[in-house]
Computed example of a mutant assay.
Amino acid sequence: MLNDYVRKGNPKSRNRAYVVHRLDRDTSGILLFAKSEQAKTFLQEHWEQTDKRYLAIVHGRLTPKEGKISTYLAENSAQRVYSTLDPARGKLSHTTYTVLKEARGFSLVEIHLLTGRKHQIRVHFAGKGHPVAGDRKYGNGDPASKRLALHARSISFTHPFSKKKMTFDTGMPEEFARLLGKM
């Protein structure tokens, strides 16, 4: 669909969108695409300097109310990601968080993703005993949310050509507000 939009309805157009990163299937929010391969390469090469913020609703009340989760993440043959203490088996992953609100056994958490590994947020919070609401893969089976309560809220990066700092923020999804209202 995005390529059709970029091509303005002309299927023979050479214009296209280049994927810079991905989100987990059920995660909502901001996705970054580039209009040229050169821009895509620049953004991917500078990915560690890209500031990525998420919102999540997790089970339970976290203590401390802000902190950093650091583990090595590995993937088994069933494509399930897990934390390990063995640096030879996994990639070091860092997630910081701040609790914004707590109610009825849930916490709204702002997350700063310092590395970007597959299922990182979901595995880190499940490992702390606070899985993301609605997470069918790493959750506790409680159908608190019809969807995964994880949202890529904002992204800040250096523009590949102008070198200006660019920031995009979507705020909180209406569904999160409804879920929080029920809390």
Rank of each mutant, 00 (worst) to 15 (best):
H151V: 08
A88E: 12
T95K: 02
L113T: 04
A152K: 06
N15M: 07
A133K: 06
K65H: 06
E175K: 12
R16P: 00
L85A: 14
Y72W: 05
T27H: 05
F33Q: 07
R16Q: 14
A133W: 09
E48H: 12
G90W: 09
Y18W: 15
D86N: 15
K68H: 08
P160V: 03
E37A: 15
E102K: 11
D86E: 12
I155F: 12
F106C: 05
A149D: 04
H124V: 04
K137C: 00
K182H: 13
H46L: 03
P64H: 10
H124D: 03
K118G: 01
Y72D: 02
R117C: 01
S162F: 04
R80D: 07
S107G: 06
G141I: 03
H151F: 03
P160C: 07
S156V: 00
H119A: 04
A103N: 09
S107E: 05
K182Q: 15
K137G: 00
R7E: 05
F106V: 15
G90D: 07
H159L: 01
G129E: 06
M166Y: 09
K146E: 13
S107R: 00
V132Y: 08
I155C: 13
L73F: 01
P160G: 03
L100I: 08
T96R: 14
H151T: 10
R53I: 08
A74D: 10
R22L: 01
A39Q: 07
T115C: 09
D24M: 04
T71H: 15
E45A: 10
I111R: 05
F42K: 07
A88S: 14
S36L: 06
Q38V: 14
K101L: 09
S162V: 01
I30E: 07
S107F: 00
E75K: 15
A56Y: 08
P87D: 03
A126P: 11
V20A: 04
S36E: 08
E175T: 11
R136E: 14
A103W: 01
H21M: 01
V99T: 13
D51K: 11
T167D: 06
A152Y: 05
M166L: 05
D169H: 06
N3P: 06
Q79H: 15
D24L: 02
H59T: 09
K165Q: 10
K128S: 09
L180H: 07
G181T: 13
T115H: 08
L2S: 00
K40R: 15
L85N: 14
E45Y: 00
S28V: 10
G9P: 00
R25L: 11
K165C: 00
L108E: 12
H46D: 15
E37W: 10
Q49A: 09
L108Q: 11
L180P: 04
R104A: 14
D169T: 03
V99I: 11
A56Q: 04
N76W: 03
T41G: 09
S154L: 03
S162D: 10
L92N: 13
A78K: 14
Q44L: 01
S28F: 11
Y82P: 13
I69F: 12
S28W: 13
E66H: 14
K40A: 14
N140R: 14
E75R: 14
F33G: 06
A34D: 04
M1F: 01
K52Y: 10
S93P: 09
K52F: 03
F42Y: 15
R16D: 02
T98E: 13
G181A: 13
V109E: 02
R80H: 12
E102F: 08
R178G: 15
I121L: 11
